[in-house]
């Protein structure tokens, strides 16, 4: 009799284990799918925000090159903007950005930060750089254009605009 009872308890334990395992797996699959979907949505949302921000920056008159080229920005204007003191005091609030820089990708040049002395033989033009609490950085590839006196023509090089704003959060 006690052996039969033991068997029944064992049987029940196995059934309970199987049921728990089954519901556990179902829950795992459900949460994995939901999390995957949420992650995708978060990523898309974050990308959209970042892209919108970067596109807005490319199209503003302080940066834009010509209307015909949607990815071109004017390096001369950007360098000038860096030195406008009135702008320097207010632009962080005006654009609500923590960091804004243009990084040269190709061709790579010897100089580092762009200044009046080494322009255009430089790699980075930092317009805004707050030193604390950066938001997520996002970037867009751009054609960095300027007038070249030696060649007597406009030239465009490959660069990217890097923007960071507290408004654009990580996913």
């Amino acid at each position: 009799m006690s052996s039969r009872g033991q068997l029944k308890i064992q049987e029940m334990a196995f059934v309970l284990l199987a049921i728990m395992l089954f519901f556990g797996i179902v829950a795992l699959i459900y949460f994995a799918l939901v999390m995957n979907d949420l992650r995708e949505q978060g990523k898309i949302q974050s990308e959209n925000e970042a892209n919108a921000l970067v596109k807005r920056m490319i199209s503003i008159p302080e940066f834009s090159w010509t209307k015909q080229c949607s990815t071109c920005i004017d390096h001369d204007k950007i360098l000038a903007l860096k030195y406008v003191e009135l702008y320097n005091k207010t632009k962080e609030e005006f654009w609500n950005l923590d960091y804004l820089a243009i990084e040269q990708i190709y061709p790579k040049k010897a100089g580092g930060e762009c200044m009046n002395g080494n322009y255009p033989n430089c790699n980075i033009t930092t317009v805004i750089s707050k030193k604390i609490n950066y938001g997520k950085t996002s970037f867009a590839y751009v054609a960095l254009c300027r007038w070249n006196n030696d060649k007597n023509q406009n030239i465009c090089e490959l660069a990217r605009i890097v923007v960071s704003s507290k408004d654009v959060k990580d996913e």
């Binding site: 990815t71 054609a143 406009n154 465009c156 490959l158």
Partner: peptide
């Protein structure tokens, strides 16, 4: 990829 498209577009403008 959006950023690859941007790369290609910007590359097209390279002098």
């Amino acid at each position: 990829s959006e950023d690859i498209k941007q790369f290609l577009e910007s590359m097209g403008e390279y002098t």
